[in-house]
Design a protein around this nucleic acid. Structure first.
Length: 932
RNA sequence: GGGCGAAUAGCUCAGCUGGUUAGAGCGCCUGUCUUACACACAGGAUGUCGGGGGUUCGAGUCCCUCUUCGCCCACCA
């Protein structure tokens, strides 16, 4: 599909260009091009009310996909939600801005390029840093951003003139500003500690990037002989025997009496026969394993803390590649034979040696969490190193407060607790990465100055020390890619330039739509950064949507091969089908289930709906034509038919329900009141309401009711045309946010369409005053009669098209209505109706309707009197039972006194209704079957 | 180990602060090419609302408990 602009006008309504099936592929690209050409999605900062303009802004910043990413269903889902919201806001009259962009994705992108290099037999070291970064930048420039083109194909109405990139010069400036400010405030510091290290990516990872995975491993019990009394020994339990060469002590709990006598003595590290002390530390849990834990400060974060408390050294025996070696302070600690051996191979060797020495007491299977690199799934190695950290507690405080006070709400609500828990137990964030692709840490080191002047954070590149003029060296690490993502809502709008017109007009933004997986990675950090630099939350609503899964409930992923390519769906059924299926099938925060093996079935909902919509348009244009239509506003109430009044009433209800489902765009006061904290954003309800209106009400009933009217030229036909066009126009508006292409295509063809205007930028429907209307209710009676006739025909095997006579016993007022609407009735029910005062005798099907109307349909030869009596009897018995229960309830003062008056009134009315019905059924039964 | 959530038709889910005879889509069965649509139309079947207990005039909805799934967090080596 191409998105080159076209100046070709949309074809007009030639029947041959209006096939029965909607051809999405032929329509969508051209429509998108015209939207773009007309600037429908380009926001105008000067119109924002924040800078004196006439419109309130409504802003969504897109979670930037990785620059090398290819669109998958997850992106589709994410952008469908955002696009529904932004299109709705645009139509509502907000100055709507949807900011698109991509993320440079440090480790992920570097991995891609390194893989390419590997194919050429090269490593990044072969290229050197500068050349590697240049090559990666070239790769990104050439192939990156494909996903943005794909987003256009699914209808994303983003403002492409504002496309951002986390690694652009502007956003890199924002990153430096943020770093330096936090550094100056003492919130960024350099720490020497054990962090998560990926021996494949050769970089440190944050706690969030090292994903715990439940693993079945082994717990080895190893006995360490006591140095001065080889007859005694102490047994430690470990899952990682290969780290024993880095042991500097064994720890027992000070309260553990079993080992009290050994505290202060030394034990011999097996294989090496190296004496190490037995120390007492609370960290040792008497209940776990043997109650003795080996202390390996360089290779376990907890052991490191223990070692620090006891002033122990930290020998490093595993290098950056995860290979056994005497790295630091470890001379003589790693046996020659193990040096250069991978940690997991070394484990096997160590176990074998321990076994040979008789030191392996036992081995038991053990369930535990092992952390893996979130990018390459390699088992993470705890590693002692110097890293940059952000002090999080002070930043978390206002972000936590914001959620508690309703300045920011998180939907679905269940995530609020998760957010609060994480925020209150937040740990410092390791932001340095030992890779090359990313924002280099803006810190320079001076060899001549003394601390703290030897470490300089600077907004500008430095070559010499600002204190002494000596040459300086920049830190070689780059920042965690999420550091720049954390600034996204601000940086894309121009921060740190406080004079940026976008920043003034559009910041803070409104809704952030993303998956819950990155609540901590990203969302929480954006909120914290928002408070740190702008003193307020960057958005007032966080919408966390579900995940796309296959029929077995597995998450769709490239590695499992169970994904669906949204572009396939677009070319097969169109973007609208994709969007409708996703939106309609996704409850707030709920997962979407699709079958990658059966796209036809998976997207039938959306495809069928788009076709239905298309065909309503087709009917309308073929029957209403293209000739000018009376403006709806000029049509007077008393000219309207019952069907008109009914459909207009249903339209108002649909509009109100859609509004309620999407909810308030923002909190009026800036703080969400309790009753709005979880309101709105039910896009599936919105879709269902609109679908029901268009399909089950407009198409199934109103259109059918209009057919006879449209066929007879005259004043009433003109009214029907006006109402039909008006209602369809409104319906297209309601549906446009979900299915933008087909609605736009149809809207442009409506009679009276003004060239150059777009549904995408037209106004959202406004519901009329809610009034009770008798004529609309009369249409409901007709509907009920038609349904009853159809049911009877189907039940008794009468061909649907076969005309039969039916008799209605009813009140004078309803009889008048039925007289008026005889043509329509006959057409819809394919049956002629005669009005009588008493039921004719003979075999007949009998139906009692809600208003007390009785339908008698003589079916000589078809009705089995005995069977009919059985049926009536069953129906009567059921009704009597329910009626008795209802009467009992109404006789109960506990109900009548305590229940709301409206409920009681409704129950009373129902009771009367049922009683009438029962009487009718009884009379009928006695007439047909005699006394019981 | 701690915390949170869910359990409603064959499947995926609605059911808002307790108040009509519990709904939708898909699937299933029957009939229909009715001049917009067979990607359609008309009609139909299917639920002890996970088990048990409780509060209430009234419970799918609130409380307790059990069972089963899911999610998040956590340094038990």
């Amino acid at each position: 599909m191409s998105f080159t602009a076209t100046t070709e006008p949309e074809s007009v309504n030639a029947p041959d260009e209006f096939p029965a099936q909607y051809d999405a592929a032929a329509t969508e690209a051209a429509i998108y091009a015209r939207w773009q050409q007309a600037g429908c999605f380009t926001a105008d900062a000067s119109r924002s009310s924040r800078v004196g303009g006439d419109r309130e802004p409504y802003v969504i910043v897109m979670p930037p996909p990785n620059v090398t990413a290819i669109l998958h269903v997850g992106h589709g889902l994410n952008n469908a939600v955002q696009d529904v919201l932004i299109r709705w806001a645009r139509m509502k009259g907000f100055e709507a801005l949807f900011v698109p962009g991509t993320d440079h994705a440090g480790i992920a992108t570097q991995n891609v390029v390194e893989k390419q290099l590997a194919a050429e037999g090269l490593t990044r070291a072969d290229l050197g840093r500068e050349e590697f970064v240049a090559r990666t930048a070239r790769f990104v420039a050439e192939t990156g951003g494909v996903i943005l083109q794909q987003l256009k194909a699914i209808g994303t109405s983003a403002d492409w003139s504002r496309t951002a990139y986390t690694f652009s010069p502007e956003l890199s400036g924002a990153v430096r500003e943020a770093f330096v400010q936090l550094f100056d405030r003492g919130l960024i510091y350099r720490g020497h500690r054990v962090i998560h290290w990926c021996p494949r990516c050769l970089t440190s990872l944050s706690d969030e990037e090292a994903e715990p995975k439940e693993t079945t491993g082994s717990l080895y019990h190893v006995s360490y002989p006591v140095a001065d009394d080889p007859s005694r020994s102490i047994t430690v339990a470990t899952t990682r025997p290969e780290t024993m060469f880095g042991d500097v002590a064994v720890a027992v709990n000070p309260a553990d009496e079993r080992y009290a006598s050994l505290i202060g003595k030394h034990v011999l590290l097996p294989i090496l026969d190296l004496p190490i002390p037995v120390i007492a530390d609370e960290y040792a849990d008497p209940a776990f394993g043997t109650g003795v834990v080996k202390i390996t400060p360089a290779h376990d974060a907890n052991d490191f803390e223990v070692g620090k408390r006891h002033g122990l050294p930290s020998p490093v025996v595993i290098d950056m590649h995860g290979v056994m070696n005497e790295v630091i302070d470890a001379a003589g600690r790693v046996p020659q034979a193990l040096r250069g051996i991978d940690r997991f191979d070394a484990r096997k060797t160590v176990i074998a040696q321990l076994e040979a020495l008789g030191r392996l007491v036992k081995k038991e299977t053990h369930q535990h969490n092992v952390r893996h690199c979130y990018r390459c799934d390699t088992v993470v190695e705890p590693r002692l190193s110097d890293q940059w950290f952000v002090r999080m507690a002070p930043l978390a405080e206002p972000a936590l407060e914001a959620a508690r006070t309703g300045r920011v709400r998180i939907l679905p609500e269940k995530w609020v607790g998760v957010y609060e828990h994480w925020m209150t137990n937040i740990r410092d964030w390791n932001i340095s990465r030992q890779i090359w692709w990313g924002h280099r840490i803006p810190v320079w080191y001076c060899g001549a100055c003394a601390a703290p002047h030897n470490v300089i954070a600077s907004r500008e590149d430095l070559t010499t020390c600002p204190h002494c003029g000596s040459p300086v060296q920049q830190d070689t690490d780059v920042l965690d890619t999420w550091f720049s993502s954390g600034l996204w809502p601000m940086s894309t709008l121009g921060w740190p330039n406080e004079n940026s017109s976008d920043l003034k007009a559009f910041y803070p933004t409104d809704v952030l739509v993303t998956a819950p997986e990155i609540l901590f990675f990203w969302v929480a950090r954006m909120i914290m950064m928002g408070y740190a630099f702008k003193g307020e939350t960057p958005f007032h609503t966080v919408y966390l949507h579900g995940t796309a899964r296959d029929t077995e409930g597995r998450k769709m992923s490239k590695s499992l091969g169970n994904g669906i390519d949204p572009m396939d769906v677009v070319s097969l059924y169109g973007a609208d089908a994709l969007r409708y299926t996703l939106i309609a099938g996704m409850g707030l925060g709920a997962d979407v289930f699709l079958d990658p093996a059966d796209l036809d079935k998976s997207f039938a909902t959306g495809r069928n709906f788009a076709t239905k919509l298309w065909n309503i348009g087709r009917f309308l244009l073929m029957n209403v034509g293209t000739a000018a239509v009376r403006p709806f506003a000029e049509v007077k109430t008393d000219e309207l038919s019952r069907a008109d009044t009914w459909i207009l009433g249903r339209l108002d209800i649909a509009i109100r329900e859609c509004d309620r489902s999407i909810g308030p765009a923002k909190a009026a006061s800036g703080i969400w009141p309790a009753d709005e904290l979880t309101a709105g954003l039910r896009l599936n309800e919105f879709a269902e309401t609109a679908r029901r209106f268009v399909w089950n009400e407009l198409a199934d009933w109103y259109l059918e009711a209009s057919k006879s009217r449209l066929l007879t030229p005259g004043a009433d036909a003109e009214v029907a045309r006006a109402v039909l066009v008006h209602v369809f126009d409104q319906a297209l508006r309601l549906l446009h946010p979900i299915v933008p292409f087909v609605t736009e295509a149809l809207w442009q063809r409506l009679p009276g369409h003004v060239d150059g205007t777009f549904l995408a930028t037209s106004s959202w429907p406004v519901a009329g005053e809610a009034t009770s209307d008798a004529r609309g209710a009369q249409f409901e009676v007709i509907k009920e009669i038609v349904e009853a006739m159809r049911r009877v025909k189907s039940e008794y095997g009468v061909a649907p098209g076969k005309p039969i006579d039916a008799f209605a016993v009813t009140s004078a007022s309803i009889r008048d209505v039925l007289h008026d609407e005889a043509t329509m009735l006959t057409r819809l029910a394919r049956t002629t109706l005669t009005f009588v005062d008493t039921a004719p005798a003979g075999a007949a099907a009998n139906v009692v309707l809600s208003g007390g109307t009785e339908l008698i349909i003589p079916l000589e030869g078809l009705v089995d009197v005995k069977k009919e009596c059985e049926k009536l009897k069953t129906e009567l018995a059921a009704l009597e039972k329910q009626l008795t229960a209802l009467e009992g309830r109404l006789a109960n003062p506990g109900f009548t006194d305590r229940a709301p008056a409206t409920v009681v009134a409704a129950e009373r009315a129902k009771c009367a209704e049922w009683a009438t019905r029962r009487d009718l059924l009884r009379t009928r039964f006695e007439g047909l079957c005699g006394k019981v």
